[in-house]
Amino acid sequence: MQRATIDLWVGIFVVAGIVAILFLALKVGNLGGYDSSETYAVKASFDNIGGLKARAPVKSAGVVVGRVAEIGFDPKTYEATVTLSLNTHYPFPKDTSASIMTSGLLGEQYIALDAGGSEKMLANGDALKITQGAVVLENLIGQFLYNKSDSAAEKGNAAE
């Protein structure tokens, strides 16, 4: 076959392959709706993050406003430090509170932001003061059982 024909086909092939990778990156993957240049970072400390993972969504009123950028552990306070990167289109007041929620009964965990009433807005590098950690199922069950046995003991006492 002529070299020109081969070159043409190889060109088509390579372009198609790169388009496929771009399609995967932008349309299938999350590279499209996620632009790191237009975000600001906010820190939040939680006593327990449960099953939260890096890149989990950050939602406010159910709308994705950012993502979890980094999860760390503070050895001084023994708390988890979570860095959120929020879209600059969505400024939040300083006294915004963050809580870790679960989408659905068994779904993945995300961070929900509840806007406060402060006049001042959060800036890059600020920390959120009010946080609510993840609800751990074991603790919940433990509490439940504890209450049960307590009430059972009370009942027993009453019976005596």
Partner: peptide, 15 residues
Amino acid sequence: ISMPLLAALFSAMGV
């Protein structure tokens, strides 16, 4: 060089 391009095309077609 061909292999990753083919794999990407395969995945894209699959989606």
